[in-house]
């Protein structure tokens, strides 16, 4: 259509890269005004039509081609992984040096077990069932406490975000209880619950509860009002709006809360296990100290770290699975 409209004003021009220069060979205006054609004012210079070009260049499907592309696209991640591995190796090396030489650098490494000793005690621990029972026990407590926290805090946070009166009623209590650390809850929890087991789960629950609640509330405050309106004038009821708009809208924030909550849950669990447990990885670590089995202390600590890392990772994985729209890039 444009082509028909410009009629006689159009001058077809063959060489692709000189569209800005006049056809009769007049000297080209140097870079001062490269885009302004020197031809009669108002003339349109059309370049010859280009052969169609594919929008996406189909990838080289062969295995080496695929591998090369994968390497190129994942370069930053690969570099980060390598750097991470290097840092951990250096840490272990430093640990080895200070412990094997029993250094005393004001901080005393006299009794600190060396990596080799810890590896040795890990071998022993892995060959008996007791160690895994401790781990299973801790995981069970985390799972129960965390699941209850999520099941209570997410709906409560959503309702509080939606109904200002409920928030005004519940929020002050939360704000007072929130800063109390898990350890401070231990005596009270032991008094409150019939069994030790229940009080430990309760403390785990408390640790996870507040981060999840606060993040859900935050998410609710940031829900785009125009989306709610859009849903309402498409015929959504209050309940449907909750399910179809508020819930997916807060999901990313909920998962932030779950990740933070999982971290705090582990902190709380270990504290509770050290003080009042009879099983669990926290108990194992504390008992190692009482029994002067120093390598087991480090083994317990490392196990706690790995377990915490793994559970956060699982949550992030779940989060990505349920919010497919937020990772389209």
């Amino acid at each position: 259509m444009t082509r028909a409209a410009v009629k006689s004003n159009v001058k077809m021009h063959t060489p692709l890269h000189v569209a800005g220069t006049p056809a009769d060979g007049a000297p080209c205006v140097p870079s001062a005004a490269p885009s302004a054609p020197v031809t009669a004012s108002g003339a349109i210079l059309l370049r010859p039509e280009r052969a169609p070009v594919a929008q996406v260049v189909t990838a080289d499907g062969s295995l080496p081609g695929l591998a090369r592309r994968w390497l190129r696209l994942n370069m930053p991640a690969i570099r980060a992984t390598l750097l991470g591995a290097l840092a951990i190796s250096l840490f272990i090396l430093a640990w080895h040096v200070v412990t094997v030489n029993r250094m005393d650098l004001y901080v005393r490494f006299l009794n600190v077990p060396s990596p080799e000793q810890v590896l040795e005690s890990a071998r022993t621990a892995f060959s008996t069932g007791a160690f895994f029972e401790h781990i299973a026990m801790s995981c069970r407590r985390i799972f129960i406490g965390f699941a209850i926290a999520a099941l209570v805090a997410v709906p409560l946070g959503m309702l509080m975000g939606r109904f200002a009166l409920l928030k005004a009623f519940v929020f002050p209590v939360c704000e007072v209880l929130r800063p109390i650390p898990a350890i401070a809850w231990v005596p009270m929890a032991i008094m409150l619950w019939p069994t030790n087991e229940q009080s430990i789960v309760f403390i785990t629950f408390l640790g996870a509860f507040f981060p999840i609640l606060i993040n859900t509330l935050h998410g609710m405050a940031n829900v785009d009002e125009v989306l709610v309106r859009a849903a309402r004038c498409l015929g959504a009821s209050e309940r449907a709006t909750f399910r179809e708009v508020y819930f997916p809208a807060v999901l990313p924030q909920v998962f932030t809360g779950l990740t933070v909550g999982m971290g705090v849950a582990w902190v709380s669990l270990i504290a509770a296990e050290m003080i009042s447990g009879q099983f669990g990885i926290g108990y194992f670590t504390w008992e190692a100290y009482s029994l002067v089995q120093y390598p087991d202390i480090a083994l317990g600590m490392i196990t706690i770290g790995v377990l915490g890392l793994a559970s956060s990772f699982l949550i992030r994985l779940a989060g990505r699975a349920v919010t497919p729209w937020s990772r389209t890039k």
């Binding site: 125009v226 004038c233 997916p248 919010t323």
Partner: peptide, 16 residues
């Protein structure tokens, strides 16, 4: 109500 459709100035598609 669904009897009155509305299009907003801000893009208001559900991102999810």
């Amino acid at each position: 109500s669904a009897d009155r459709g509305m299009v907003f100035q801000q893009y208001s598609l559900f991102p999810w």
